[in-house]
Design a binder for these strands. Sequence first.
DNA 1: CAGTATCCCCTTGGATACTG
DNA 2: CAGTATCCAAGGGGATACTG
Lengths: 131, 131
Amino acid sequence: MQAQEGTLAKRDFCDETGTCHKISDMLSRIGDKWTVLIVSYLGERQMRFSELRNTIGNISQKMLTSTLRKLERDGFVTRTVTPSRPPRVDYALTELGRDLLVPVQALADWSVKNADRIEQARARFEQDRAG
Amino acid sequence: MQAQEGTLAKRDFCDETGTCHKISDMLSRIGDKWTVLIVSYLGERQMRFSELRNTIGNISQKMLTSTLRKLERDGFVTRTVTPSRPPRVDYALTELGRDLLVPVQALADWSVKNADRIEQARARFEQDRAG
DNA sequence: CAGTATCCCCTTGGATACTG
DNA sequence: CAGTATCCAAGGGGATACTG
């Protein structure tokens, strides 16, 4: 067997057309502390700023604001201002944002399914380090 | 239409069983600066330390070492030492490591396919900010 | 209510020097 | 060759105070 059927080649996502840069950007973009959590909440329904903050619980205003701004900038969420007193701002996923959830969900499924394999590997690693 | 068919609910990957924690961990784990790049190179074939360093080009020894250690710890790569003079150390993906490439590839495909939608959203965002 | 501005800590990651 | 040890700069992210 010369070429393993299950093996994915580097060029599939790290070729010379900047592909690897794109996937790295995307991963670091959604791999931060809050993005996935926020997107997942907005995946259920539209929410206001304070609602998100209260639901998430331990997020700072600063990080909620900046994460939402980045998501808005990249076209993943919309920001709708209702100019009342007090003001009201609603956030919702765009089509692109809902689209993003599909591959993220796949990675989530993989993570859950293989969590104990990783845990076992870590236990083995610690074991070997101690022994 | 009460429940949109394309909408993914929060609980799908952020329920109360620690699932959201797992996906966040995984994303921040592979969302760092070097992991995907290294895993993608090892996806092509086994490589030695210096070979990886030369191929990647601009990675520091420190980051290559620590990234490889984490990958080894989590069971994604194997580390094989040949006690010669000078010593030789080979790194290769495990079954689990090759497995991981599948959902990562899906996310990579998505990133490439939607890169210009994101780019357009950014351009629009800058436009609106300026106007 | 929904932010912005400021300060400060901690982690990530690069550069350099040293070792088995 | 394949690391480890150390120092340092930049950015992520929290706490607090202030504003339209």
